[in-house]
Nucleic acid binder design. Structure first.
Lengths: 228, 228
DNA sequence: TTTAAAATATGATATTTATCACTTTTTTAA
DNA sequence: TTAAAAAAGTGATAAATATCATATTTTAAA
């Protein structure tokens, strides 16, 4: 069992504010899990017994709408914490998390985190800041969803994915999303997403082969995102 | 100058977790402000020097989209705190707040709140819980914006306004929103909002006279919100 | 390796929503 | 009180998007 004190991942999230003793205690109660591509880390309505610290891989966090359609709310990756919200409000999760590729995550029991939140103001302040950023981003998404066209949202999403996940050797964006996933991020029908991707390809703004999408002309893509 | 220790409003928000001494200190540095209908409490991009505790009145909190359209993100009313997010992330506000009617608010300087957050775990935990709820709600709004039709969103919004603000003696929802405001909540063109309101009126699901809107058939409205 | 299932793609069409132009009503301020 | 401005309302039309049907390609499983 690897030790939290030596884990480099915690430097990327609020856990970096924990003291040595707190980390040792955490090491003793945390468990490590492998989640295969397509598997759920947790389901909508599930009561989480702790939070997850993502050591490797990416998952999509989504919510079912009353219309029976799935909306991807966020993508969570290496270094991120998952499940803080449900832990803090002490409610069943309103979201589900599905692995987009094979993942390695650490599970930290609720009691441990709550104790640290209570006792370590640096830690709780850091979690507060994280949540403040989440709220700010959520506000931006609300505005985009409400006011931008699907085409704008697609362009913006491609740019965001590019800057967040980078590219592989073939310059393709480093994340494996199906057309349906893309549609569920931007909030549109899968067919619409496919059509708009094809349009961008025809115009030589992007290219793709299967799920590997590359941006050829990011300034043009940016113009589209802004409504031109 | 009224005293925080005796103020009933704080029972409605996280400030209720402050100790007597903390409240006394707060009393000494807080200031009271009257904001007239239509005036801004703060503007987008403004650096807030503290938070606001709303004693009376309602304001709309909105954000401009890149398309030049305004999106109302939330309505803040008596008992709510305003500006916590910007304070915690120590950034300029990404939102603006405009009074919908005459308001009375208390302004509490940043340093005071930060000190309390640092020292009082009950208070910081309460703020964390608040923010967790805000995130959950924001997720719901994202899903609605992305997946529901304008008609569904209008129906849902009317029901939400009704349950949150109640009705006056004439059974009209107790909030003064222009048609444009309503459009900016649901994320549509003003004309579209007007048309859909007229439709609901024709079908005897709501009635209205000017800005006073009453729900006549809430079960039918609920069906519409759910997509029937 | 072959076959079934899933994902991607595309056309035709319907529905939803925005835009523009204009009228009427209400509100505000001189 | 009245004139001007703002808000509300409506029709015509264009643009965006969803839906349905179906074909093709890719992936996964027997």
């Amino acid at each position: 069992m690897s030790k939290c004190e030596q884990c480099i991942i915690r430097q990327f999230n609020s856990l970096k504010h924990l003291s040595r003793e707190e980390l040792v205690r955490m090491s003793n109660c945390k468990t490590s899990r492998i989640i295969k591509k397509g598997e759920a880390i947790f389901e909508e309505g599930e009561r989480l017994k702790g939070i997850f610290c993502v050591k490797d891989g990416i998952c999509k966090v989504s919510k079912m709408s009353e219309n029976g359609r799935n909306q991807i709310i966020s993508l969570v990756t290496k270094g991120d914490l998952l499940g803080e919200r449900s832990l803090i409000s002490d409610e069943a999760s309103n979201l589900k998390a599905i692995a987009l590729n094979d993942m390695e995550v650490c599970f930290i029991p609720k009691e441990e985190i709550l104790k640290d939140l209570e006792k370590n103001p640096n830690f709780s302040m850091s979690v507060l800041k994280d949540m403040a950023q989440t709220i700010k981003q959520a506000d931006n998404v609300i505005v985009d969803m409400a006011q931008k066209t699907v085409k704008q949202r697609l362009a913006e999403t491609l740019l965001n994915l590019h800057s967040r996940f980078g590219v592989n050797k073939e310059k393709a964006i480093n994340i494996n999303l199906s057309r349906e996933d893309i549609a569920n991020i931007i909030g549109t029908a899968t067919e619409s997403a496919i059509r708009l991707l094809s349009d961008l390809k025809k115009k030589n703004i992007i290219e793709f082969k299967g799920k590997d999408i590359s941006i050829l002309n990011s300034s043009e893509l940016d113009k589209i995102a802004q409504g031109f």
